[in-house]
Design a protein around this nucleic acid. Structure first.
Lengths: 333, 333
DNA sequence: GCATGAGGTCCCTTGTAGGAA
DNA sequence: TTTCCTACAAGGGACCTCATG
């Protein structure tokens, strides 16, 4: 709690001298340094960073505003962000939006007041958040594409991932495929549908996947799976556009006693991290979540450090397909 | 970027008047308010919270220092913390220690400099971190007990949970039980062993569980399970002291083609959140993770607001036992 | 009572200047 | 004069107290 002037008083020097000892710059005699260090020790002095921040307009803090840290995908991204930020002397403040634009904007304003040095944002809509657009704070858009805007962004290659996941199903012989995906105005949800459609087109098929737009949650997976099971002809494969949807799908299928993969193949976007999987089962498209957080953070910190460079970067990370046990050739009708 | 005096200049008033408009206190005429609001709008003025923080010594920020956000248990705790903090106008900075005392202390010092209003800490050792002990910053210890210290803390009832989990196994007829747990100097690891031992004692048995001390990770679960399988007589049940260990146990058992629960019963502490479980399988002791985060946060904020009240609170939350499919009566030898 | 403003304060560091050997 | 060390004053943003009309 003690301030620099109290330490200075105790050591019998001026505050600036204490500052020099703490920051190890400027000339300080050995004897003076010793006295100052003793005073610091005795008083448990820890400098208040608010002062310098006021001057430098830097807080060494980044904001990470995402949908819901409870999803292991975001947890992993967050860990990548934190590790990268730490390496460069920054800390992160996390905010969950639960996909609410209102919550998102509240966070952005609040965190702007706190003078965070930059933002990593998973936008709740397909537009650049107002607060960010108006002010000149550096930010990087995570995971999603933004409409009509040239901004720095880092995301996984949803189109390619969905394309290859779908191609895997088509190669197995599936023709009736249902996609259960997120909101239409989330680029990932949209792109994953696009990728799937492209796979159908490239295969020269006239069929198209049947699409169900919902939320990126378990309930959506569960609910639409129940509907899908009522379709005629019944699809032989379900494409879950994220991990939570995938789990909802599995619950519905189990409840309806549909065997996977014998009676229904299931693929999903986003794996669950290895340490929490008892039984890796899903055939999935894996985004490099940790890497995504790391690269976005480094990009952001680069921006913060050289306000100069114009232009923007759009980093699209490759997605890996892992074939496991949730897919097989469709059952003969 | 604009400061209050620039807004004031534009509106033709003094800075303090802008302040009054923004904070809606003091007298401001309608006409002046209108002009000021227009200026604020035009300049996208967002007040800098650093100024007031300097005076008030409050940053409306809490630090959450935990072992690893990648564990869904901690993610859930974190979400509880964030929601509770938000409700009371605070934000949180998260730091992962990976159980390293050094990392922990680095964080505590750095975050002290940033003047966070309080700390929620999952201590990496069984002592109160030095930085916290020396300074008079409010803090709450999460999840673990601290040696010889009277501090505010919130944790799950490890002893009772372990007791009942073990009793469940004993009731099924198991006598040879191996425990795979965390570090001996982590109270949860220690208490869970104690709870298990108590269950043996209360049952009037002369046997005792066989204990393996490791880390709270998958690798520990895997490695010790391999060793346990070599014991004679071979244990008929394994008690994993957390979820990651439990998953490591399962991997080892699967690799060794030991059927669960037919050839080996397995119980674990800490569930995986429902949305990420494809197939709820483990018989577990569930700690109210979200509630833990929430209560710890409210306790901390209460402390921050009335420095007055002496004494400390030790909140021990009940643990629920959920019996699922990983336990059964032991096979006849 | 109402409306506005000047000045001091929080804590630290930068710029500038000065003292001592 | 040169080299080493120390100190004063100011500033950065917002707001509280006090003062004035």
């Amino acid at each position: 709690m003690s301030a620099i002037h109290e330490v200075a008083k105790r050591a019998g020097v001026a505050p600036i001298t204490v500052s020099r000892v703490v920051n190890n710059n400027g000339y300080v005699s050995k004897e003076t340094r010793r006295r100052v260090e003793a005073a610091i020790e005795e008083m448990n002095y820890i400098p208040n960073a608010l002062g310098p921040s006021l001057r430098s307009k830097r807080t060494q803090t980044l904001a990470l505003v995402l949908s819901d840290i409870t999803n292991p995908f975001w947890t992993t991204v967050a860990r990548g962000v934190e590790d990268a930020a730490n390496l460069r002397g920054h800390h992160i403040i996390i905010g969950n939006t639960d996909e609410s634009i209102e919550k998102q904007d509240d966070y952005l304003v609040f965190l702007s007041k706190k003078q965070v040095d930059g933002f990593l944002v998973v936008p709740a809509s397909s537009y650049v958040p107002k607060t960010l657009a108006k002010r000149r704070v550096p930010f990087v858009i995570l995971d999603r594409k933004i409409r009509d805007a040239q901004v720095d962004s880092v995301r996984g290659d949803s189109i390619s991932g969905a394309y290859r996941l779908t191609k895997h199903l088509l190669d197995l012989g599936h023709r009736h495929i249902s996609i259960i995906t997120g909101r239409q105005d989330h680029s990932t949800a949209y792109d994953r549908v696009q990728g799937a459609v492209q796979a159908f087109e490239q295969a020269g098929l006239h069929e198209r996947p049947q699409v169900n737009w919902g939320e990126y949650d378990q309930e959506t997976g569960y609910r639409f799976t129940k509907q899908v099971l009522e379709l005629t002809p019944r699809p032989t494969a379900i494409f879950a556009a994220n991990n939570f949807i995938g789990i909802g799908v599995m619950h519905a299928l189990r409840e309806s006693k549909i065997l996977v993969p014998q009676a229904m193949s299931v693929v999903a976007f986003d794996d669950l991290p290895a340490p929490i999987m008892v039984d890796p089962f899903f055939t999935v498209a894996v985004q490099p979540a940790y890497e995504m957080g790391k690269q976005a953070t480094n990009l952001l910190l680069d921006r913060i450090n050289d306000n100069g460079s114009e232009g923007y970067q759009e980093i699209v990370l490759p997605v890996e397909i892992i074939v496991r046990n949730s897919t097989a050739v469709p059952a003969k009708p």
